[in-house]
């Protein structure tokens, strides 16, 4: 049975979809990805769809689901490299993928994730600073 590989890169999980997804494959990906997020404690998920030429409403929903699920497990999702035709189709289907971050290519996507993590760390540091201040 076909499987979409999920690669771990530091704090992030990398998924490149190289084949056209059919429903079962997409559902498996959703389940695998969520369990990987919890196992590796990932801070970000990057999904590369640059070689996907067909996305239907089901796939659009799965992408949205993955983003929401990861979000509640404290990981941001970035979808990168969407083809113009696919973007137009999704919009026409009424699925603008709210809550999913997007980037033009993998490089920009990684930058975006890194900046998110930096922001979070800064926030935490500030909180820690506050804590130390209050204890002094």
């Amino acid at each position: 049975m076909e499987k979409i590989p999920i690669l771990r890169m530091g704090h992030f999980l990398l998924v490149t979809i190289q084949v056209d997804l059919y429903d079962q494959l997409a559902e498996n990906l959703e389940a695998d990805l969520v369990s990987m997020v919890s196992k590796t404690n990932a801070k970000g998920v990057l999904i590369d769809v640059s070689s996907v030429s067909i996305i239907d409403s089901f796939m659009g929903r799965i992408l949205g689901n993955i983003a929401t699920m990861s979000k509640i497990m404290d990981a941001d999702t970035v979808v990168v490299g969407m083809q113009p035709a696919v973007a137009i189709t999704l919009v026409e289907l009424g699925l603008p993928l709210k809550g999913v971050y997007t980037a033009l290519n993998v490089e920009r996507g990684m930058e975006l994730l890194r900046s998110k993590i930096l922001l979070e760390e800064e926030d935490q540091e500030e909180e820690n600073d506050d804590d130390t201040d209050s204890t002094e």
């Binding site: 979808v79 969407m82 696919v86 973007a87 919009v91 603008p96 993928l97 997007t102 980037a103 920009r108």
Partner: peptide, 9 residues
């Protein structure tokens, strides 16, 4: 605008 956002811009 939505389509542009989906592209990551």
């Amino acid at each position: 605008v939505s389509a542009t956002r989906l592209m990551g811009a």
